[in-house]
Amino acid sequence: KLPPGWEKRMFRSNGTVYYFNHITNASQFERPSG
């Protein structure tokens, strides 16, 4: 389970998975720990 605010997303163009935090508007490719 991801830390609060984080969700898994995917770029439609190339299928790359990334993680987005809707609380802080942060995004990263590494899976957030917590």
Rank of each mutant, 00 (worst) to 15 (best):
Q28K: 09
W6V: 05
R31G: 03
P4T: 05
Q28Y: 04
M10H: 13
N14I: 04
R9Y: 08
N21V: 06
H22M: 11
S33Y: 13
P4E: 09
R31I: 11
G34N: 11
P32R: 00
K1S: 11
S27M: 15
F29I: 13
L2R: 02
H22G: 08
Q28D: 01
A26M: 14
F11T: 12
W6H: 02
A26S: 11
G5L: 01
N14K: 05
S27K: 10
S13W: 14
Y19S: 00
T24K: 02
L2S: 06
N14V: 04
Q28H: 08
E30L: 08
Y18V: 03
K1E: 13
P4H: 07
T16A: 12
Y19N: 00
G34M: 12
E30K: 06
R12D: 15
M10K: 09
N21Y: 06
F29A: 10
N25V: 01
G34L: 12
N21H: 04
P3V: 02
T24G: 06
K8E: 15
K8H: 04
P4G: 06
N21R: 02
N14F: 00
T24V: 03
R31E: 10
Y18Q: 03
I23E: 09
P32N: 00
S27E: 15
S33M: 13
R31L: 10
P3C: 04
F20H: 10
M10D: 07
T16D: 06
G5N: 06
S13K: 13
Y19T: 00
G34D: 12
K8L: 12
H22S: 13
E7H: 08
Q28F: 04
Y18E: 03
H22W: 12
P32I: 04
R12A: 15
H22V: 15
A26K: 12
I23G: 02
Y18A: 00
S33L: 11
M10L: 13
E30R: 06
F20I: 03
G5F: 05
R12T: 14
A26I: 14
F11R: 06
N25A: 06
F20R: 00
T24Q: 08
F11V: 12
N25G: 15
S27G: 04
S33Q: 12
K1T: 12
P4V: 07
G15R: 05
H22Q: 11
S13G: 13
A26T: 14
V17A: 08
R9F: 09
R12F: 13
L2P: 15
G5Q: 04
L2M: 06
H22T: 15
R12S: 15
F29S: 09
P3E: 01
P3Q: 03
I23F: 13
L2F: 06
I23H: 08
G34T: 13
M10F: 14
T16G: 11
W6N: 01
L2G: 09
H22E: 08
Y18D: 05
V17T: 07
R9D: 07
E7R: 01
T16V: 13
G34F: 14
E7S: 06
S13L: 08
K1R: 10
K8G: 04
N21E: 03
W6D: 03
G5V: 03
P3N: 01
R9S: 04
Q28S: 09
P32L: 00
G34Y: 14
M10A: 11
T16I: 15
S27L: 14
N21A: 00
N14T: 14
F29T: 09
Y18H: 02
R31V: 09
E30D: 11
T16P: 07
N14W: 08
E30F: 06
N21I: 10
V17L: 02
H22D: 06
S13E: 14
P3A: 04
N25Q: 12
Q28W: 03
R12V: 14
S13H: 14
F20P: 04
K1D: 15
H22R: 10
R9W: 03
I23T: 07
G15T: 05
I23A: 07
G15L: 05
P3S: 01
F29P: 03
E30N: 08
M10P: 09
Y19R: 00
Y19G: 00
F20G: 00
S33E: 13
R12G: 15
G34R: 09
I23L: 09
L2N: 01
G15E: 06
Y18F: 08
F29H: 07
R9T: 02
N21K: 05
G34E: 14
R31A: 08
N14A: 14
E7W: 04
L2K: 15
V17R: 03
M10R: 11
P32A: 00
S13V: 13
F20E: 02
E30Y: 06
Y18W: 05
N25P: 01
S27T: 14
A26R: 12
W6T: 05
F11A: 10
H22L: 13
K1G: 12
N25Y: 08
T16L: 14
S13P: 14
T16M: 13
Q28G: 07
N21S: 03
P4K: 06
M10I: 15
M10V: 15
S27N: 03
G5M: 02
G5H: 07
M10G: 07
P32Y: 03
R9G: 02
Y18R: 01
E30I: 06
G15N: 08
I23M: 08
E30A: 04
W6L: 02
H22I: 15
G15V: 00
L2W: 04
P3R: 00
N25D: 06
A26E: 13
F29D: 07
N25W: 07
R12M: 14
K8W: 03
T24I: 04
A26N: 11
Y18T: 00
G34W: 15
K1N: 12
T16Q: 13
L2E: 15
E7N: 03
K8Q: 13
P32T: 00
N25F: 10
M10N: 08
V17I: 11
S27F: 15
P4S: 07
R12Y: 14
Q28L: 06
T24N: 06
R9K: 11
E30Q: 11
L2C: 00
V17M: 05
T24S: 04
S27A: 12
T16H: 11
R31P: 11
T24R: 06
G15D: 03
Q28E: 04
S33G: 12
W6A: 02
R12W: 13
I23P: 03
Y19L: 00
G5R: 03
S27H: 12
H22Y: 14
W6I: 02
N21T: 05
E7T: 08
S13A: 10
T16Y: 15
A26F: 06
G5P: 11
T16W: 09
I23S: 05
S33H: 08
E30H: 09
P32K: 00
T24P: 03
L2V: 08
R12I: 14
F20Y: 14
I23K: 07
V17Q: 05
Y19H: 04
N21G: 03
K1V: 11
R9P: 04
K8P: 03
G34C: 15
G34V: 11
W6F: 00
S13R: 09
R9N: 05
P4Q: 06
T16S: 12
W6G: 02
N25M: 14
